[in-house]
Amino acid sequence: MKIVYLIVRYLTLPGTFLQAFFEHLTCRVYEVLIEEGRYLRPNEMCGHVEHELVRKRSTSFGICFFPFLFNLLIGLMLTAVGAVNVLYLGEFFTSGGSVHILNFLFLWVGVSALTNLFPQTEDALTLKELIYAKGKSNLFVKIIAAPIFAVLYAGSYLQKWGVTLLTSAAFAYALPYILGTFLPQLYELVQM
């Protein structure tokens, strides 16, 4: 399945790059030692930086969560623009008649970012060990971290098998309808 993983990674190059960049940035902020800083290596580390084993819970959480958060925000923004313009309004062409490349680019980069949200499985397992191993955290932390951890943990496995490309594409298709449930009301409020 490594080949599927790599194909998905290279198909979603902007998201792969962004994820590695944000992982690098987070490692720098937390002063985590990076052993290999190339982002697009043709192996399972594609889209990640190779860093030392993290032993601190907050650092491990940060390395898993912040690249996820930044890619999610960028992905949501760009997917919203691309999906609304292309998939909902159908703005395939400019008013001049040429192909609206920018709209397709928004959609591609947005879906790419959403495809590459999740941490490496090793990082997710480290986080699990640091939060859920016996005596590592109190019950309150375990409960508070559970939803985010569940998303990160499950997502890391989905991403490992390249399934996130399908989920993000489906999400892009559904996003205009999701926006349609609240944006008109919000727009009216802003207009008032």
Binding site: L78, V81, V84, L89, E91, F106, G110, L179, L183
Partner: peptide, 15 residues
């Protein structure tokens, strides 16, 4: 992208 989204909001809402 944010600017483009804002520009398209009115049309999107009406659609």
């Amino acid at each position: 992208g944010g600017y483009q989204f804002a520009r398209h909001t009115e049309v999107f809402v009406k659609a």
